[in-house]
Deep mutational scan, measured.
Amino acid sequence: MSIQHFRVALIPFFAAFCLPVFAHPETLVKVKDAEDQLGARVGYIELDLNSGKILESFRPEERFPMMSTFKVLLCGAVLSRVDAGQEQLGRRIHYSQNDLVEYSPVTEKHLTDGMTVRELCSAAITMSDNTAANLLLTTIGGPKELTAFLHNMGDHVTRLDRWEPELNEAIPNDERDTTMPAAMATTLRKLLTGELLTLASRQQLIDWMEADKVAGPLLRSALPAGWFIADKSGAGERGSRGIIAALGPDGKPSRIVVIYTTGSQATMDERNRQIAEIGASLIKHW
Rank of each mutant, 00 (worst) to 15 (best):
E108D: 13
E195I: 15
D99G: 10
E119R: 13
L55T: 05
M127A: 06
T147V: 15
D36F: 10
D177G: 03
L223C: 10
L247Q: 01
S96Q: 03
A246W: 09
S57D: 12
R189L: 10
L160F: 13
L74N: 08
F70N: 00
Q97P: 03
A170Y: 00
L205R: 05
M127D: 15
L150Q: 02
A245G: 09
Q274L: 02
T179D: 15
G76E: 04
L146V: 00
T126M: 00
I283V: 15
G142N: 12
L282V: 08
V31L: 02
A133E: 02
E195A: 05
N98I: 09
L55H: 14
V257Q: 04
L160M: 15
A225M: 00
A124V: 09
N50W: 08
A235G: 11
E270V: 09
R255A: 02
I140F: 15
G279Y: 00
Q97T: 09
L28C: 07
L135E: 09
P172C: 01
L199N: 09
T267P: 10
R271H: 03
G85Y: 01
E164T: 11
R189S: 11
R189H: 13
Y260Q: 01
K252N: 01
F228I: 05
H151K: 02
T179V: 10
L167W: 08
P181C: 00
L47V: 02
T69I: 03
T138Q: 05
P25E: 12
R241C: 04
R41E: 14
D231R: 06
N50K: 13
L192P: 03
A266L: 15
R118C: 15
D129P: 10
K30F: 10
P181T: 12
T107K: 01
H24W: 08
F64W: 10
K109E: 13
L111Y: 02
A148C: 09
S68H: 03
T187N: 15
L205K: 12
G90Q: 12
G52P: 02
F70T: 05
G279P: 10
V72Y: 11
K190G: 15
R238Q: 15
S51I: 09
L79W: 03
E56R: 12
D36E: 08
A200W: 05
G194E: 10
R238Y: 09
K53G: 04
D99I: 07
I54R: 03
V257G: 01
T139H: 00
D36P: 02
G141H: 13
M268F: 14
A182W: 12
L49M: 09
I244S: 14
D33E: 04
T187R: 00
T187K: 00
G279N: 14
R220C: 08
I243V: 09
L219F: 02
E145Q: 05
Q97F: 03
K232Y: 11
P65E: 01
M67W: 08
L247S: 06
W208S: 10
V78E: 14
T198L: 09
G154M: 02
P105F: 09
G226R: 10
P172Y: 06
Q86Y: 08
T139S: 04
W163E: 07
Y95G: 14
E87A: 13
G85R: 02
E56I: 07
A211C: 03
A34D: 14
A182T: 10
D129E: 14
I259T: 07
I45T: 02
A182L: 11
K53W: 03
Q265H: 12
T131L: 11
R273W: 07
G236P: 12
D155A: 12
R273D: 15
I256E: 12
I54H: 06
L28A: 08
T112M: 12
I259H: 10
M153F: 15
I283P: 14
T27C: 08
E270W: 02
T126S: 11
A183E: 06
S80N: 00
Q204Y: 15
E56Q: 01
L188S: 10
V106Y: 09
T139Y: 11
L150F: 08
K30W: 14
G114R: 09
D207A: 02
S201W: 10
N173A: 13
A230Q: 03
L79Q: 12
G248F: 06
T27G: 02
L111F: 10
K232M: 15
R81Q: 00
Q203G: 12
A77P: 10
S128L: 01
L79D: 07
T267R: 11
I140W: 14
K144C: 09
F228V: 05
A183P: 10
V72R: 02
L136A: 04
A225E: 00
H156S: 04
L150S: 04
Q265P: 11
E56M: 01
A276D: 10
L137K: 10
A280C: 03
T126A: 04
K109I: 08
G85Q: 03
T69Y: 05
L73H: 09
L136C: 00
T138H: 05
D48S: 00
V78F: 05
M115I: 08
N152I: 12
T261R: 05
L197I: 02
A182V: 09
R63Y: 04
F64Y: 10
L223A: 03
C121V: 13
I229N: 02
R202I: 09
L146A: 02
I259N: 14
L89A: 03
D161T: 03
M184V: 08
W227R: 02
G39Q: 14
L197P: 10
L146T: 02
T267W: 05
A266N: 15
P253Y: 00
P105H: 07
L137A: 03
Y44E: 09
I171E: 07
G216Y: 09
I244D: 15
V157G: 14
T126L: 11
S240E: 00
M184R: 06
Q265C: 10
E26V: 09
A211I: 05
R92A: 09
N168I: 11
S128N: 04
V157L: 05
N168L: 09
D36S: 09
L47Y: 01
T262C: 08
V258N: 14
T186D: 01
A133G: 03
G279K: 15
V157S: 04
M184K: 09
Q203F: 14
R220M: 14
R59D: 08
G85W: 03
E87Y: 06
F64V: 13
V117Q: 00
V257S: 06
P25D: 08
M153E: 07
K190D: 15
F70S: 03
D231P: 08
H110Y: 14
G236N: 15
I206G: 11
L73S: 12
G52D: 03
A266S: 15
L282K: 01
A246Q: 03
E210V: 09
E145S: 09
L135C: 01
S51N: 09
A222L: 14
D174C: 00
D83W: 03
L73V: 13
T27D: 04
A132T: 11
D212F: 00
N272D: 13
L167N: 08
E270D: 15
P143N: 05
E166G: 07
G251S: 01
R162C: 01
G242E: 12
D269A: 14
L120T: 06
E169D: 02
I140R: 13
D269C: 02
R241D: 12
P253S: 11
M115S: 01
C75V: 10
R241F: 07
C121M: 07
N98G: 05
G251Y: 15
R271C: 01
A246T: 09
P105K: 14
I283Q: 12
A276Y: 06
L73T: 07
S68N: 01
S51A: 09
N152V: 11
N272V: 11
A133Y: 07
R271P: 07
S51V: 15
H94D: 13
K30L: 14
F228K: 14
E56D: 13
D177H: 02
